[in-house]
Amino acid sequence: MKRLRALEPLAWVGPAVVLIAVVVLWPVIEMIRSSFLKISRFGVVQGGNGLANYEKLFGEKDFADIMVRSVIWVVAVVALTVLISLALAQLFNQQFPLRKVARWALIAPWAASVLMTAIIFKWMLDPEVGVINQIRLKLGLIDAMGGAAADQLGDASTAMPWLVFVAVFVSVPFTTYALLAGLATIPADVYEAARMDGAGRFRTYWSITLPLLRPALTVAALINVMNVFNSFPIIWAMTHGQPGYSTATSTILMFILKGSDIGESAAMSVVNFGMVIVLTVIFLRVSRWNKEVA
């Protein structure tokens, strides 16, 4: 009986361990294994393929551009999201009439399906009938509907900013709420002490709010880094990575490759997986997450 007793923790931890093994570890192992197999477009496994999938992937004409674009995409979206959310969190931390309504409204883009949001933006940007283009027409920014000027998603130079905009739009609510929760943990007496010592508003924010907000900020930004890097629906719904591959990130390339060569697609997934880990490590280094606030 005593021995059985010693096993009791296993009964509690076991399910979680099994869950992680089945849902997280096993797919990762399968993914890595697939990346070394030769698999036809029809799903037929034709045996081992050594490193050929990786060689083919790295040999793709657009591979380097896509990887650089993926990093720029992550940095741009996360940086803008965090900056906007910092400001919004401050705003929503103040008392003002209808604050509750405003806070609820902020949840909307978060609660809506990302795919739905992306499709709605695509419709709003439609060159023939999109409402954004009708507004631009009324403002005199474009001469007519239907032409190339009204087709912002048709060219990478104008499509990319819109993709970033939509990604920021759907990321801001979560980030703001995470930061809002962080702000709520900062005790009021710290601010009081700062005021007593004659610190100005900017100084207070820089020396007290930001450092004390760092744990929340780090977690929020980190989750965004991973989410945005793996983000698929926004780009897929709005541009398919086109024209060519000029708006594709590595996640989009992975999906496109799945239609022609599953092994190469798995290799792309493994590279993606590695990229997320590298980005996370760099991020944690830069933000010195485990250093205590002085």
């Binding site: 009791e8 009964a11 099994v18």
Partner: peptide
């Protein structure tokens, strides 16, 4: 003990 084990077993079965 029995309860814990049962819960664990049930989870595994569900999985």
């Amino acid at each position: 003990l029995v309860g814990g084990a049962a819960l664990g077993l049930a989870s595994v079965l569900v999985l």
